[in-house]
Simulated scan of single mutants.
Amino acid sequence: MKRLSLGAGLLAGVVGLCAVAACTPALNWREVRLDGGALALFPCKPDHQTRTVALAGQTVALTLHACAAAGLRFAVAQADVLTPERVEPALAALAQAQARNLQATLPAGEPAQVAGMTPNAQARRYALSGLRPDGSAVQAQLLLFARGTQVLQATVLDGTPDTPAVHTFMDALRAPG
């Protein structure tokens, strides 16, 4: 029977804990305050860009915060739809657009709960299997929710629902009031 020294055993324990907590050298977690006050925990420094898009029959400024780490792409898109009656159609349109972009069928999804969010029937979590424009397979994890008139979509591309980094990213989202 081979025995590990205390140092080797401690090192093995730390490595095991880091793997469970999605802690790898490729993942350098940092909290990012988004426009409108929502908070996200990204595993890399996100770039951001804003562009004008059509969303559920209206033109809005959509801001995207995104970065790539450990073979995964992490993003949060957000837009202010200005009135409460536009929130539900905008959340549904975001989910449908993502499914269409991935050539995937949008499943029913599961109800989502994010700390500080405004309750909404379209606050959902989805797991999509689709295709990139080049035809290669892609997995996408989506979380859609709202805070007031701000609609948000968190996305992880190439991660499965049980990927520790996906859990960390999605579970850390907050919409403080």
Rank of each mutant, 00 (worst) to 15 (best):
Q49K: 09
A12Q: 09
G37Y: 07
G71N: 06
A92G: 03
P25S: 11
L94P: 12
L10S: 11
A8K: 12
F145S: 11
C67E: 03
A79D: 09
A77L: 03
L34S: 11
A92I: 07
P43T: 06
A40I: 04
R73Y: 05
Q113H: 10
S5E: 06
N28T: 13
D158R: 06
P25K: 12
L152K: 04
N120H: 14
H48T: 11
Q98I: 04
L102I: 05
V76M: 12
R33W: 02
P46R: 02
A68D: 12
L144P: 08
L106C: 04
P43D: 10
R86A: 08
L82Q: 15
L94I: 04
L128S: 09
R125F: 00
A26D: 15
P164E: 11
A26W: 07
G177K: 13
D171T: 12
V156E: 09
A123E: 08
R100S: 14
A90R: 12
P161H: 00
P176L: 15
V151M: 04
L94Y: 13
N28G: 06
R30P: 04
F74A: 06
A123M: 06
V20W: 09
D162I: 06
F169G: 03
C67R: 03
L11C: 05
V53Y: 01
R132Y: 04
Q78P: 00
A112Y: 09
M117E: 15
T83W: 00
A21V: 03
A112F: 07
Q122K: 14
V81W: 00
L157A: 01
P164C: 11
A115L: 09
A26E: 15
